[in-house]
Simulated assay, not measured.
Amino acid sequence: MTKHKIYTMSFASVYPHYVKKAERKGRTKEEVDEIIRWLTGYSQEELEAQLKKQTDFETFLEEAPQMNPSRELIKGVVCGVRVENVEEPTMREIRYLDKLIDELAKGKAFEKILRN
Rank of each mutant, 00 (worst) to 15 (best):
K3C: 07
H4Y: 15
S10D: 11
S10F: 04
S10Q: 14
F11N: 05
S13I: 00
S13Y: 02
V14I: 14
V14K: 10
P16I: 04
P16T: 06
H17D: 02
V19N: 02
K21H: 03
A22P: 09
A22C: 08
R24L: 10
T28N: 03
T28I: 03
K29S: 07
E31T: 00
D33K: 13
D33T: 08
I35T: 01
I36V: 15
R37L: 14
L39Q: 12
Y42K: 09
Y42T: 08
S43T: 14
Q44D: 12
Q44I: 09
E46V: 04
E46W: 03
E46Q: 15
Q54R: 15
Q54E: 15
T55E: 08
D56W: 08
T59I: 00
T59W: 00
E62S: 02
E62T: 01
E62D: 05
P65F: 10
P65T: 11
N68D: 06
N68E: 10
E72C: 09
I74N: 03
G76C: 01
V77G: 05
C79D: 14
C79L: 12
C79F: 12
G80M: 06
G80E: 05
G80P: 03
G80H: 06
V81W: 01
R82F: 04
E84Y: 00
V86A: 14
E87M: 08
E88Y: 11
E88H: 15
E88Q: 14
P89E: 08
M91Y: 12
M91T: 13
M91V: 09
Y96F: 14
D98I: 01
I101Q: 11
D102F: 08
A105H: 12
A105Y: 07
A105V: 12
K106H: 13
K106V: 01
K108D: 01
F110T: 06
F110G: 06
E111G: 03
E111L: 04
I113Y: 06
L114G: 01
R115A: 09
